[in-house]
Nucleic acid binder design. Structure first.
Length: 281
DNA sequence: AGCCAGGGAGTCG
DNA sequence: CGACTCCATGGC
């Protein structure tokens, strides 16, 4: 008999039989989760929570007051309603993807808030993950809404759009400051329509995203995948380029397009952690 | 000191 | 188009 979604102590219990929480939160798709004891603490949008995994269930202990849609919010964030079994079944048809899947099973593609994702990956350009995390934390602490537990939510496009690049000096994000402001202004002006980016043709969505300063092919694919839920997106960095050359000399096969995003994430996890394809320590 | 970090913009030819 | 160079910052 299924557990109620919200327990008496406020903990939300979500069934997630095939989820690898640790791999999902540490594989480089998100920047605001920190391992804490047996779980992870993080802030998404304006909600903070301590999450953990036990007996096939994802346990969410919100650190900010529960909203009416709390369970639905986290269910969507962790992408629990997508049929990952079907995606992995399809990937198992390809020898390379099958091997990568076996190594990194249980990774979910997070459905992160769009603007937050856009900013995060603009900041990721020619940067390393620890420093990206630091910049994002300073961005939230300086300009984000104060949450009830002392943490800070992600600033709104309107808030950032009203700033000048000198105001962003405390972030120490270098030349990316003006890119951040451009993204915020495009959002605030309504020029970037999240609904259209989610539903419209991929080429149109790519082109629209790349009109933002600091958004090139790589960042656009990341935003499409992690911030707009578009599984057909396929971010390619130098490592992935190497892996593609080695394992997919004719390019990523179109017949796997519907699971491309997960395939990319799994391949990335695989080549970075198992020493496959490129021998950097 | 020098190199690298999940790239991208600007400028050449 | 393709092949450069520079871009701020911090860690090693």
């Amino acid at each position: 008999m299924p557990l109620p979604a919200v327990q008496l102590d406020g903990t939300i219990v979500l069934q997630a039989p095939d989820l690898d929480l640790r791999a999902t939160l540490l594989c480089g798709q998100c920047f605001r989760w920190e391992e804490r004891g047996t779980g992870f603490f993080g802030v998404v949008s304006d909600r903070a929570a301590l999450v953990s995994y036990r007996d096939g269930n994802l346990l969410i202990a919100p650190a900010t007051p529960l909203k009416e849609d709390e369970a639905a919010f986290w269910r969507n964030y962790f992408d629990l309603d997508r049929d990952y079994e079907a995606l992995r079944r399809q990937m198992a048809l390809h020898p390379v993807l099958r091997e990568a899947c076996a190594f990194a099973s249980g990774i979910h593609i997070l459905r992160q808030p769009f603007f937050e994702t856009l900013c995060s990956f603009i900041l990721s350009a020619n940067n390393n993950i620890p420093r990206i995390k630091g910049i994002i934390e300073r961005l939230c602490a300086c300009f984000g809404p104060a949450l009830e537990d002392g943490h800070f939510g992600f600033p709104s496009p309107e808030t950032l759009a009203a700033l000048k690049k000198e105001d962003l000096a405390p972030l120490r994000c270098g030349y990316r400051a003006s890119y951040l402001l451009d993204a915020a202004r495009r959002m605030a002006s309504g020029e970037l329509d999240e609904t259209a980016l989610k539903a419209g043709p991929m080429p149109d969505a790519r082109a629209a995203l790349q009109t933002v300063m600091g958004v090139g092919p790589k960042v656009a694919e990341c935003v499409l995948l992690y911030g707009l839920g578009r599984m057909e997106a396929f971010p390619v960095d130098v490592w992935m380029r190497r892996a593609l050359l080695e394992h997919f000399p004719q390019g990523f096969p179109e017949e796997y397009r519907s699971c491309a995003g997960l395939a990319q994430q799994v391949l990335y996890h695989w080549v970075r952690q198992s020493g496959k394809s490129g021998e950097k320590a």
